[in-house]
Simulated scan of single mutants.
Amino acid sequence: MSSSTLIKRVVLVGATGAVGAPVLQTLVDQHFDVTVFTRASSNHSFPSNVHVANVNYEDVASMTKALQGQDALISTIGFGGATLQKHLLDAAIAAGVKRFLPSEFGCDTHNPRVAAIPLFRTKLDIDEYMDEKVKGTGTTYTCVYTNAFLDWGLVNNGLLLDLPGKKIQMIDGGETPFTANSLDFIAKGTVAVLKHPDETANRAVRLNGAVVTLNQVLQYAKKYAGAEGWEVDEVTTEALEHEGMKNFKARPEDLSGYMMQFIKLAIYGSEFGGNFDGNNDNALLGLKKMSDGEVEQLVRSMVK
């Protein structure tokens, strides 16, 4: 790592979200100088060793001022705020920030089947914008791909399964292997990018915390939450794609009608590149893939 790319001072956007909170904790634990961007209306509190800057995400000039002297900007904002990232990037470039990490943290949009899904058009727009805007500047970017969220996906929206409600949508028989990452693994991988700025400049990195199947996850869930009373809905990726496209064409403004279908299609579809075995950056980033036993214990820890 050259002295010109050394990253010490980091701004985090979205620090209270599912990804942002563990990223913030990891940055603090690893002794980065951290500033959190928040809206003026925010009432969230942060540790005393974290700086807080109130910003207007529509005002590039004010964000440029707030980014002076910073080395990296990590965005973990939610899907609804994705377009604001163009303003963040513009401000980062104007302020001379060395590294920008957009809010990817999901399916690999470099895969052509994923890229063709309408839901991911916003992310592709941002990727194309980054490619063009960083040319000839001192700013570089890294996209972090994670595929499925493991622990979060057990209890939120039934992304993997609905552990509290004992429900699962079993896709293509549940035997397709796919990558899933715990939020802690995602945070450690994201922060590790900052320690390898030269090797990760202007490209995607893929985190491969675990490779599992839905049947495997369901087996662990039944073992610790009880085998009785599970509702299993068998569905194919073809059906998910058909339903998602139908709802998207009917009401493209209504994300609730197709978001989950498209996300599951990209995560579980065998042609969508959701298994990062053989195509990941664990070794570069100093990360170790979880064993089946560790995945089982994580599922056990999520049973209430």
Rank of each mutant, 00 (worst) to 15 (best):
S3E: 08
T5H: 15
T5I: 12
R9K: 13
R9H: 10
R9T: 13
V10R: 11
V11K: 04
G14T: 06
A18G: 03
G20Y: 05
G20I: 03
G20Q: 11
G20E: 05
A21Y: 05
V23P: 04
V23C: 06
V28N: 08
H31K: 06
T35N: 11
R39N: 03
N43Q: 13
N54L: 01
N54Q: 15
V55G: 07
N56V: 13
Y57Q: 06
E58V: 00
D59L: 03
V60I: 14
V60F: 10
A61S: 03
A61Q: 11
A61H: 04
S62G: 05
T64I: 04
Q68I: 11
G69S: 07
Q70G: 03
D71I: 03
L73F: 09
I77S: 10
F79Y: 15
K86L: 12
L88W: 03
L88G: 13
L88C: 05
A91G: 07
A94K: 14
A94L: 03
V97Y: 09
R99C: 08
G106R: 00
C107D: 12
C107M: 10
D108I: 15
T109V: 09
A116F: 08
I126L: 14
E128C: 02
G136F: 11
T137F: 12
T139G: 06
Y141H: 11
Y141D: 02
T142S: 15
C143V: 05
V144L: 03
T146Y: 07
F149W: 11
L150S: 01
L160W: 05
L163Y: 05
P164E: 12
K167A: 14
K167E: 11
K167Y: 04
I168G: 01
G174P: 00
S182H: 04
I186L: 02
G189A: 10
T190F: 08
K195Y: 14
D198F: 08
E199D: 14
E199C: 09
N202E: 09
R203T: 03
R206D: 02
V211I: 07
V212I: 14
L214C: 02
V217G: 02
Y220C: 06
Y220G: 01
A221C: 10
K223R: 02
A225I: 00
A227Y: 00
W230E: 07
E231V: 12
V232R: 05
V235G: 04
A239D: 10
A239I: 00
L240M: 14
E241I: 04
H242V: 04
E243T: 09
E243W: 01
K249G: 01
R251C: 00
L255Y: 13
G257Y: 07
G257Q: 02
G257T: 09
G257P: 12
F262M: 14
L265V: 07
L265H: 04
A266H: 02
D277G: 02
A283K: 14
A283F: 15
L285V: 07
L285M: 13
G286M: 13
K289L: 01
S291W: 09
Q297G: 10
V299N: 05
S301I: 06
M302K: 15
V303M: 10
